[in-house]
Design a protein around this nucleic acid. Structure first.
Lengths: 232, 232
DNA sequence: TACCTCAGTTTGTCATGACAAAGTATTGAC
DNA sequence: GTCAATACTTTGTCATGACAAACTGAGGTA
């Protein structure tokens, strides 16, 4: 574990425990570095890390203050399944459809591939706490990762991508809303015309290769997106 | 202008012009630093800046590659008004209500202030391209900034905050959806029961002071949120 | 041919030193 | 007493040097 990360972790613990209160200034960089026996760049990097997470704020000529005792995590590239597991909401997945088919224009445009390129097309129904929560559609280029229904029933898509050595690094999401169609209302156990949250996402790996396109609808009555922002 | 920023800007221009294509590797840090006559930390910092914006990806032992020719801006702490101005969509604001009143429990909890603390409560109708787009409710603690209706008609709320010396640094947003009430449908020129996007946001300044609470509804037929993420 | 080892390349981490810029507090003059 | 100039504190930027860790590819061996 890098030294700067150890320092950041120690600072974070002090703040979370309340030993350095909100609004209080932390020790200046030079003294802190000396006391911990590390160099100032290392100390700066540790502080920078916490600043980026929204815990600290720096002011030249003034010092570094605590602004929030909890880490505000940046929006993460995780899948719904991961979020639900983390939230202890007992997710279950029903795979409604899984087949290899040529990419439609919509999918091809989103993934920046040629129309007709074979992709794995997946339709899943995601349950949480025994109730349906979301209807999910995904397209994964066949040459990126072959998938089976068994995998998908018990794991999140992003988990499968990662175990296949594929790491999503960049994604574009569009969040909107619309009314449920009859078919959607039926599988989601909502009334016809109920409001749904929609989210489409395209994710790329470090090499700029498109990994996944997703077009999902969530029951607005049971789900919302939470986003924490921090401006540098 | 800092040296590392000048280097980053030069690199960015090269990539945006396409002189360094997507997938291509850029010069290694040591050589680049020497050629530009700067130190390696400065070069690293410039590259780091572009990595954080999603243009470049680094791999130890391999090099630094271009993954996207355009900067993927992080989600910014801007207001809808600013977004619309930037998108050339001719925003107009109608102030429906503006009064000082004691904070409700909901508002007080969001702003982390005592219930009953005086806040300015604002209801606005935002138009874009001549059509209503969003119904916006805001609460600003009175001791943060006094506001008048004239200000709000011609400027975004965040613009006013900034001109008052208040800089939002951290915000939490929750995005959801629901059906329009009759009153909402009427002012937004939607049918009753139409799907609306909802967004609530609380913004804090660098000192951890809550600046603003907002609870807005957008016509889902005319608006959606776009979010770009980059991990790691 | 297939696999392993090892050298080379490139980024990751860390230390030390120095000066600049911005904000705060003190001191002095009027 | 008030205001302005000055000194001090603290973060921001930059240079130099060094070693570590991860990946690549060539070469040797079974």
């Amino acid at each position: 574990m890098p030294l700067y990360f150890q320092v950041a972790t120690r600072l974070q613990e002090l703040i979370e425990k309340g030993e350095i209160g909100v609004g209080a200034r932390i020790e200046n960089e030079v003294d802190l570095a000396e006391r911990l026996g590390v160099s100032r760049p290392t100390t700066r990097r540790a502080i920078q890390y916490l600043v980026e997470r929204g815990m600290l704020v720096r002011k030249r000529g003034v010092g570094t203050q605590v602004v929030h005792p909890k880490v505000r995590r940046p929006v993460e590239l995780s899948s719904l399944y991961d979020d639900l597991v983390a939230g202890d909401r007992a997710p279950r997945t029903e795979v409604l459809r899984l087949e290899v088919m040529p990419a439609s224009d919509t999918v091809a445009t989103a993934l920046e591939i040629a129309p007709g390129t074979p992709v794995t097309w997946i339709e899943r129904l995601r349950y949480a706490g025994g109730e349906p929560l979301a209807l999910m559609h995904n397209a994964i280029p066949l040459d990126v990762l072959p998938l089976t229904g068994d995998d998908l029933a018990g794991h999140g898509l992003y988990e499968l991508l990662r175990s296949g050595g594929l790491t999503p690094r960049i994604a574009t999401q569009v969040i909107g809303a619309r009314s449920a169609t009859s078919a959607e209302a039926k599988v989601l156990q909502e009334k016809r015309g109920a409001s749904l949250l929609t989210m489409t996402r395209t994710a790329w790996d470090a090499g700029g290769r498109a990994l996944e396109y997703g077009s999902h609808v969530y029951r607005a009555s049971r789900y919302s997106f939470e986003i924490n922002l921090s401006a540098g």
